[in-house]
Amino acid sequence: MIEIGRLCLKIAGKESGKKCVIVDVIDDSYVMVDGDVKRKRCNIKHLEPLEGTIKIEKNASHDMVVKEFKKLAIEIKESKPKEKKEKPKKIRGKKEKVEVKEEKPKRKALLTVGAKKEKKETKAKTTENKKEKPDKPKEEKKVKKKIVKENKS
């Protein structure tokens, strides 16, 4: 009853209730099985032999078994592995450069030697300008004060 090409029904396991064919007889208790189930070793106790047989060679390929099954009108569901999507690779330590806004120069940077000189020059310029400008109003003020004093007296 157990021979190469014998159609069988699986009784145990998650593929129970599905049809398969014996591809190879390994020893007294184990056979190689293929068809509507995953191609693997199987215990004879987990198989229920059916009436039909298929003409196939020993260790026939899965494609051959599928062809023979199609002739008998037994559908085989084949699950294809999912196509892998390429993910953007993350490199450790190398972060993408982010555009940084132009920052104002910090106070520390201004206090460097070169910056100090510039600061002094700019200060001197501003003080000279200031000295020239307020001369006129001071005189006016003095005049005004004199006028006020004269009026009081």
Binding site: L9, I11, S16, E48
Partner: peptide, 8 residues
């Protein structure tokens, strides 16, 4: 198991 055998 008996059910599957009966069906077969």
């Amino acid at each position: 198991r008996l059910l599957f055998i009966r069906e077969a």
